[in-house]
């Protein structure tokens, strides 16, 4: 009897030791978002809540960011391990010498669109000629307008471009001071609905402006020193994306539990559902994190022609696909 009791105690001790050992052996990874947590980040928070990173042996710390440029600089400076940033910004900084690489393209389609009031006569990009269009200087908006105009035969010189601060976007459109703005509908629509302003969107992606967007970025040093951690991180993240595509409401709950100020539930659910439907998988995508080569080439052409990205190197010089799951994680919905 006493022997059995001793065995039990030893067993418990061993189990505790193993559990503690495995917890302390988890690899610490700091992941910096592109901006303050918003519904677009629900998938990462959900992946953490679901324990995907823990199961992959990663002890993850998620840090809010303050813009893609800042996040890429933090990654390059070694202040964080992995960053989430706009692919165009990453490539631009990498082309200028930042020792960073994309390891997965999360949002294969960007959300940018020309947003107009529901009753607006603007039905196609060509209709923007002679109208007032609001853009935020220094952002991708102006470059994307150029790309869309080039693809659709629109004369940008005939558009009355009004520059304003991003925070003024809602008011400018809501009060009719501009006929259209370039912004992200899945964020803007619920806010405009709150103000009682019905709107619709002309998505850039529907007008021959293919553009990859939010991507995971790490340093080349991290790829050399911790390749297995990177591989496990990417796999856990994509698992979170897939889970979010399957259950956006659960992802929103996870987000709002951690960041209650990330937005109102209805608006957040709208954003997450829209992203799940439209952003994570481009047409002919190989899988989550990896668009088709044809789509990548087309996106890179937009970057080099309109976004000031140098075309000296091919896109593959900035994007290392070796850390994506093999076989690829296929797109779940759509």
């Amino acid at each position: 009897m006493a022997r059995k009791g001793l065995d039990f105690v030893l067993g418990v001790c061993l189990a505790v030791a193993l559990a503690t050992g495995s917890a302390s052996a988890a690899d610490k990874v700091k992941f910096t978002l592109n901006f303050a947590a918003d519904p677009g980040h629900a998938a990462y928070i959900y992946a953490q809540k679901q324990g995907y990173y823990r199961d992959a042996g990663i002890d993850l710390e998620i840090e809010q960011g303050r813009g893609s440029g800042s996040t890429v600089q933090l990654v390059a400076a070694g202040q964080t391990d992995v960053g989430l940033a706009d692919a165009g910004v990453i490539v631009n900084l990498a082309a200028r010498g930042a020792p960073v690489k994309i390891i997965g393209i999360i949002e294969q389609l960007s959300s940018w669109a020309v947003i107009v009031r529901e009753d607006s006569p603007i039905k196609t990009p060509k209709d923007l000629e002679g109208r007032k269009l609001g853009v935020v200087p220094g952002t991708a908006q102006r470059a994307l307008l150029g790309a869309m105009a080039g693809a659709q035969g629109v004369d940008v010189a005939k558009i009355d471009i009004v520059n304003f601060d991003a925070a003024a976007s809602l008011s400018m459109l809501g009060e009719g001071r501009v006929d259209a703005v370039i912004d992200v509908p899945d964020i803007m629509f619920p806010r405009l609905k709150d103000r009682g302003i019905p709107v619709r969107a002309l998505y850039m992606r529907d007008f021959k402006v293919p553009l990859v967007s939010m991507s995971l970025v790490v340093t080349e040093k991290m790829l050399q020193e911790r390749p297995d951690v990177v591989r496990r991180f990417v796999a856990a993240t994509l698992k979170g994306i897939k889970a979010t595509m399957e259950n956006p409401a659960a992802a929103v709950s996870a987000l709002l539990e951690v960041y209650p100020d990330a937005g109102k539930r209805d608006a957040a659910l709208f954003t997450v559902t829209e992203r799940a439907k439209n952003n994570y998988c481009a047409p002919d995508s190989v899988g989550l994190g990896l668009p088709s080569q044809k789509y990548l080439d087309a996106s890179y052409e937009v970057m080099t022609k309109f976004m000031g990205v140098s075309s000296d190197k091919p896109f593959s010089a900035y994007f290392d696909t070796a850390y994506l799951p093999n076989p690829p994680l296929v797109c779940a919905t759509k």
Partner: peptide, 19 residues
């Protein structure tokens, strides 16, 4: 407001972006 991820200025920035 400009560069941090916490504090009163950050709350103001979030409030602006959340309308």
């Amino acid at each position: 407001y400009v560069a941090a991820t916490d504090g009163l200025g950050f709350v103001a920035m979030r409030a602006v972006t959340n309308d």
